[in-house]
């Protein structure tokens, strides 16, 4: 199944995400400044959000949420249709970081995956409205149309076995038979 995936170079954003996943600080070559390549998110917020999104859709044979561009989707929509959710993201992500430092003494993105999972499980219980928001946006970004920045190369549709683009013009009515109506 892996053969369906396009090999290719990491984009700058994935590079940032990959760097963040590994707990590395800003990688050399990234744009300087608070927002890096993001339109709305700060680099720190993006690191935290990456960790949460990748627990919602982790990597297996197919990419994780961030590897499929979900962060790009959310960041883009926070400048567009989801402007009304900016407040929730700002505060929600800050609270997660505070909780992570309090409990494990380090930022969420630098924790081992098991501890990240625990933290996201806690988030679901302790701040369900923010968790549901991130869950919805992550799944939309992963399974929705690639035109919005997520679901890169329609990777989730490939995972589900849906041809993309679909085969069209098939199965027209057989005019050689008598009409049944």
């Amino acid at each position: 199944m892996l053969s369906n995936r396009k090999p290719g170079k990491l984009t700058r954003r994935q590079f940032v995400a990959a760097g963040a996943l590994g707990g590395a600080a800003l990688a050399i070559g990234c744009k300087a400044g608070k927002h890096g390549d993001w339109e709305y998110l700060t680099v720190e917020q993006a690191r935290t959000l990456t960790a949460i999104c990748d627990q919602i859709v982790p990597a297996d044979d197919y990419p994780s949420a961030s590897q499929a561009g979900v962060l790009h989707y959310i960041d883009k929509q926070l400048m567009r249709h989801y402007r009304r959710h900016r407040h929730a993201y700002r505060h929600g992500l800050a609270d997660v970081e505070t909780a992570s430092r309090k409990r494990f003494g380090a930022e969420l993105a630098s924790l081992p995956l098991e501890q990240q999972l625990e933290m996201v499980g806690d988030l679901e219980k302790q701040n369900p409205s923010f968790f549901e928001l991130v869950r919805s946006h992550t799944l939309e970004g992963y399974y929705g149309s690639p035109r919005h920045g997520g679901n890169r190369d329609a990777v989730s549709w490939q995972m589900l076995g849906l041809a993309e683009p679909p085969i069209r013009g098939r199965a027209q009515y057989d005019l050689t038979k008598d009409s049944p109506s």
């Binding site: 919602i56 799944l139 399974y143 929705g144 995972m159």
Partner: peptide, 28 residues
């Protein structure tokens, strides 16, 4: 696919690896 997210068999976790794998198992 977007319509299947919350239409997985009762008891399926709503996120995480199990949700992703259930999407794969049940969408079709």
């Amino acid at each position: 696919p977007i319509h299947t997210l919350d239409r997985l068999p009762p008891g399926t976790p709503r996120w995480g690896l199990a949700h992703k794998q259930a999407m794969r198992a049940w969408h079709k």
